[in-house]
Write a protein that binds this DNA or RNA. Structure first.
Length: 611
RNA sequence: GCGGGUGUAGCUCAGUGGUCAGAGUGCCUGCCUGUCACGCAGGAAGCCGCGGGUUCAAGUCCCGUCAUCCGCGCCA
């Protein structure tokens, strides 16, 4: 029988255990060495505890204690005792007790680490790539294993909730089929028939619909998804979603599950305010009021339509925008009148980054009587300016930010970003609130100006509202679909739809998307055939697990909530992947590599580039 | 593909074209019986990301390049 095995974990011992003989296992968090008196903070997954080696008690142990360094792996045998008066540490759960060591086993030594785990303040600044390279060390930090624990609890909570609602967790393949529509696929070469490829799933979309045809009725999965697209702070090429599909349901049934699951998980794991029921708004309403389909509803400052004033003002920028079918809209910046000239210029620059041609501002000194500073004041009569202030619900000290553009999309995009920026600056985006909402009735398709084709807004199996079927021939852009997003604090956190189960409607959608019979058969033949054997009405959704954890922890960086994340461009500094492979492997797969132009200096080589 | 930031000791950072290779921390050595970011003394530690250029002189200025972070495009 081994004597080094733990009898109890470090972080859970307190006064009631005083007097007990214990064995602890863990890592040396810090060591404080006074020569004949040594303190060792021992750390395991549950927390920290202070171990004391005292020469007057165990003279034979001091030399060993002196030699112990950070991150050594120890087994400590000793007695739990109350700390002396005045030496309690209120920062530790175990701060009222300590372990008087009777023996210490060094189970393993450790080299000096590339960063100091115990210095949490500095760890927040350490280069991320270095932390990811040494992730197995970084994960030793309390903050990190607390994150892992929360993530575990969240997925467990989800599984429990879905189970109680009658859902079955079913795994679907990772090697699947490329679907060129949508995001770029990750491809896996097929050795037995060179030139053929599997693709990694962008989501288990088709499999879950096939499970409905199979009669599963209620499916869910905590599913890994892969999309070969550029990263953002909240986006990695490899991520996890809760994937759900249900049969014999309408949109309302699905929304109730989304909402119920979200409330169940968030309220179990977070103390943040969670306004319920989740407000619902249509896509059109969201675009009108907030300028995007993922509104941050923690604050107001809704967009203001100034067409009424702009159409009368003798200002060519406004007139032209409206004449070309555009819009003139604004957002109010509370207290923005105090911005310096330079700060207003920066706002203008901000707007131009997102495609605005300019930004008109009205700095409000007084509303009654009307007193403003504005470059556009000379184009407006006093009545028009007064009306503008009324429409904007302006108060003294505000800055009204106006965007005019022939493209409503540009107006919406710029103002929604400006609104969020103003919300941040004014401290209106309360971090203690998780403001979920459901956005419904998305357009079925969107016109792609580059390709000159209609594109599916969600995916080709999304069911249009039946009352909109007539628009297929007249104005496809007007078709609204049974399609919905879950939004949290201005971020898309999930989406789904009711699927088409009627072949006649499916073929009209394919026709609209310009996917001809041959291509349908090639890409979707399997699922269309499946639908022909009796597909039940069905629908579902998927929500991002990573983003959920980010929201629970107030963490803006997705890599902070993943055990082993990739860094920029999908690089993994820990494994040093992606990596080259043996020529033999390539040969077996029938692959030949065209050298990348990167380091080639000659100008002719670009001719071979595909993109 | 594009725009912006960063790159100097293991880590985090400072550094006016001219005694300029610096600080804090970590590391090593010594002393220390109540610390908990222990303290004190001493020491080691550098391709100033890489390659060109300007200059009498470059960590500092210019050009290029690489890496990384943030954003845009992209992400049915």
């Amino acid at each position: 029988m081994s004597t080094w095995k733990r009898t109890v974990s470090c972080g859970v011992i307190s006064l009631p255990e005083v007097g007990q003989e214990v064995v602890l296992n863990g890592w040396v968090h810090r060591q404080r060495d006074f020569g004949d008196l040594v303190f060792i903070d021992l750390r395991d997954r549950t927390g920290l505890i202070q171990v004391v080696v005292d020469a007057s008690v165990t003279p034979g142990l001091v030399a060993l204690a002196n030699s112990i360094r950070s991150e050594y792996v120890l087994s400590v045998k000793g007695t739990v005792r109350q700390r002396r008066e005045g030496t309690h540490n209120a920062n530790l759960f175990t701060g009222e007790i300590e372990i008087e060591a009777s023996s210490i086993d060094v189970l393993n030594t450790a080299k000096t680490l590339p960063f100091v785990l115990a210095d949490e303040e500095n760890m927040r600044l350490v280069d991320e790539t270095l932390r990811v390279k040494y992730r197995y060390l970084d994960l030793r930090r309390p903050k990190m294993y607390q994150m892992l624990e929360l993530r575990h609890k969240a997925t467990k909570q989800i599984r429990d909730y879905m189970s109680t609602q009658g859902f079955l967790e079913i795994e679907t393949p990772i090697f699947t089929k490329s679907t060129p529509e949508g995001a770029r696929d990750y491809l896996v070469p097929y050795r037995l028939d060179p030139g053929m490829f599997y693709a990694l799933p962008q989501s288990p979309q088709q499999y879950k619909q096939l499970l409905m045809v199979a009669g599963c009725e209620r499916y869910f999965q905590i599913a890994r998804c892969f999309r070969d697209e550029s990263q953002r702070a909240d986006r990695l090429p490899e991520f996890t979603q809760l994937d759900v599909e249900m049969s014999f349901v309408d949109q309302e049934d699905v929304l109730n599950i989304i909402e119920g699951m979200t409330i169940d998980v968030v309220s179990a794991l977070s103390k943040k305010q969670l306004p319920t029921p989740f407000p619902r708004l249509t896509y059109d309403e969201s675009m009108r009021r907030y300028g995007n389909d993922k509104p941050d509803i923690r604050f107001g400052l809704e967009l203001i339509d100034l067409e009424e004033v702009a159409s009368q003002a003798e200002f060519s920028v406004f007139q032209q925008a409206l004449a070309e079918g555009g819009q003139v809209k604004a957002v109010r910046y509370p207290g923005g009148a105090s911005l310096s000239r330079r700060e207003v210029d920066d706002l203008q620059k901000f707007c131009k980054e997102f495609g605005a041609k300019g930004l008109a501002t009205v700095s409000v000194t007084s509303v009654e009587p009307v007193e403003v500073k504005s470059a556009i004041a000379k184009f407006l009569t006093e009545e028009q300016m007064a009306r503008l202030l009324t429409l904007s619900e302006a108060a003294a000290g505000d800055l009204i930010c106006i965007i005019a553009d022939p493209k409503p999309k540009t107006v919406a995009n710029v103002l929604s970003r400006l609104r969020n920026e103003i919300g941040s600056r004014c401290g209106l985006r309360d971090p203690n609130v998780l403001a979920f909402c459901l956005v419904t009735d998305f357009p079925l398709v969107q016109w792609d100006e580059e390709t000159g084709k209609w594109d599916a807004e969600h995916h080709p199996f999304t069911m249009p509202h039946e009352s909109h079927l007539a628009y297929f021939d007249t104005d496809p852009g007007k078709i609204r679909a049974q399609c919905y997003d879950l939004v949290c604090n201005g971020q898309e956190s999930g989406s789904g739809s009711i699927r088409i189960h009627r072949p006649d409607i499916q073929s009209r959608v394919f026709q609209l998307l310009g996917i001809d019979d041959e291509r349908q058969k090639e890409r979707f033949g399997h699922i269309l055939e499946a639908f022909s054997y009796g597909a039940p009405p069905h629908g579902g959704f998927a929500t991002g697990i990573d983003r959920l954890i980010m929201n629970l922890l107030d963490e803006p960086n997705i890599r902070e909530v993943i055990a082993f994340p990739k860094v920029g461009f999908g690089y993994d500094p820990l494994m040093d992947s992606p990596s080259s492979v043996d020529a033999e492997q390539l040969k077996e797969l029938g692959l030949a590599i065209i050298p990348h132009k990167k380091k080639a200096t000659t100008e002719t080589e670009t001719a071979t580039e595909a993109e």
